[in-house]
Design a binder for these strands. Structure first.
Lengths: 337, 337
DNA sequence: TTGAAAGCGGTACCAT
DNA sequence: ATGGTACCGCTTTCAA
């Protein structure tokens, strides 16, 4: 393998000179520099990142922690992160611990510590927040996506869950629905809670007396399907459902169709996330709230770079627009976006 | 930061002793070992991966290169890779170059070289195969997924594209269809070619005289939609279409519905991949060929570990079973799987 | 402008 | 069984 020393020896110059030439730093006689660079090209020399980071104590590594890879949601965020990381000389360490599996979470944290990552971008969940002390010991920036645990610092990124959920409630009202329910999720997460609160707040404004049915389910279509069937049976008058996720929306639609309801004539449905599986439905492309996934990834990594460079950064809340498709009726009456 | 030396000094033992204790290697007096381990725990010492890999010349890093992150397909493969990597002390470097963008591809390769990864798992495409010389210089194992370029060595992983496509053709025949077309893709990839060949072979067996229409499209629903509309208009007698991907299947279904055809009564459709967006269709969950994504990821990483340990490994072709759902008629008549 | 050399945090060999 | 030490490849200070 070619090293700095090899090149230095073969050219009769010092190691330092080669280092400067390779990195474009320091002062060097122009022709020395040129000579070295030619040799570098010729030998195909590539600097050793481990050696470099050992002495600079910068790894140029960013740990990225996501709980789910089997759904396009995090993949699209990852794509955003990766593109700006790569353009700025950072490389991503991808970690995908099974959510709340203690072993997985601690293994992953240990990796992060050993690798001396320069920063961590993660979608936090309780199992990882429990390891906060460890992570904090690294003393590197942490950017939280979607969710937020104060133990992990105060740099975060999310969408306007409250406002967008409120928009969904208002939209359903504007389309003529008056019996509106919600399928929420039973996970410990403030984003779901914010969506719930926004939904309630929207209804409170328009129908102060109305108390909507809200059911909770696990975050998967199967689970929602069961819960939605229960909700629709126990509240046969429902003419609209807001889902805290697209999984919730799809599960609800499944249940509604089984019960012989027509979408959206009998029942309107709005989801959240704008997942591919919601957008690409052949017959019922879902009305939903769009989370700007790629943009969030891009912003997260830009924020990370600023943090690493000690620039001041602000946590950001993205707008999440309402997209009207085929699971809501009277779209022309809906003025809110 | 705590280092080996810190611990050694504070305990009055040698650095070597601490190294042995931490790694559980070498011979050490039991009580010395115990004493050291306690100190390690107390100080929260974590070894520095860069320093370690500098001297061992093993990085315990695996470069993973995927062309697309915005679709659950590669995410699910990644999840499989990550789980076995983590359990074996390896960490993944995630790379997502824009396919066939030269800059991206060379940046990514440079990263791989600098990081001295112990292995590379990738879904190869022409832009990356062009950098094969560089990658080969690393002299580390390369495992190719889905596609295969001989320039990148001979370790690969794929599904039985030919046989499964043949199954699809036979299944469509068994269900009673006699006018069967195909939507293929115009990308330079042998997997698509194998699917095409399998399809043709299946039909040749059953209807030697029949010459099926085969149209090519880009790999996205929009593109397929256009092409499928053209195909269905130019061949109004078609009663079945085999899609080289689920994108092809969905785009075709879209076109068929627009033309007023009933699925599956008027036209049967079988896709390939078993993507979430195909499986989770509310009204038309797609009959398709299932690629075992997680399993492929798991196997790829296991294969990588064997290769690193100089064990002999064999390239593997996974079975890809036919899954019958709602886009094929007379499923009960279809005996092939 | 350039060469020599210290040292980053480990591993592993060579003596003792 | 254990201590001393060379060295991995690179950056950077210091002196010339």
């Amino acid at each position: 393998m070619t090293t700095l020393k090899n090149i230095a020896d073969s050219l009769g110059v010092s190691i330092r000179a080669v280092s400067y030439a390779v990195n474009g730093t320091g002062r060097l006689a122009p022709d020395t520099r040129k000579k070295i660079l030619e040799k570098v090209l010729e030998t195909g020399y590539v600097p050793n990142a481990a050696a470099r980071s050992l002495v600079t104590s910068k790894s140029k590594l960013i740990g990225v922690l996501v709980p789910i890879l089997s759904c396009s949601f995090y993949g699209r965020i990852l794509a955003g992160i990766e593109s700006v990381a790569r353009k700025n000389g950072y490389t991503l360490l991808l970690m995908n611990p099974v959510e709340n599996n203690e072993d997985d979470c601690s293994t992953v944290c240990l990796q992060l510590l050993q690798r001396k990552v320069d920063g961590i971008i993660l979608n936090p969940f309780p199992g990882i927040a429990r390891e906060a002390d460890l992570l904090l010991k690294l003393e590197v920036p942490i950017v939280q996506i979607k969710n937020f645990f104060p133990e992990l610092g105060n740099h975060s990124l999310k969408v306007s869950n409250f406002e967008s959920a409120k928009k969904a409630a208002i939209a359903l009202y504007q389309s003529g629905c008056r019996n509106i329910g919600m399928i929420a999720h039973n996970q410990n997460s403030n984003e779901i809670y914010e969506r719930y609160s926004g939904f309630i707040a929207g209804l409170k404004e328009l129908m102060p007396e109305y108390v909507p049915p809200v059911y909770e389910s696990s975050v998967d279509i199967q689970g929602v399907h069961q819960v939605a069937k229960k909700m629709l049976s126990e509240h046969p008058g429902l003419d609209a459902v807001f889902g805290a996720s697209d999984f919730a929306a799809i599960g609800t639609a499944k249940a509604a169709l089984e019960l012989g309801l027509k979408i959206p004539e009998d029942i309107s449905i709005i989801g959240f996330d704008n997942l591919n599986i919601a957008a690409e439905q052949l017959i019922y492309p879902f009305s939903t709230i769009d989370q700007p996934k790629e943009e969030m990834g891009i912003y997260a990594m830009e924020m990370m770079i600023d943090l690493i460079n000690k620039k001041s950064v602000e946590s950001k809340t993205f707008e999440a627009p309402l997209i009207l498709r085929e699971t809501t009726k009277n779209n022309h009456l809906i003025t809110i976006r």
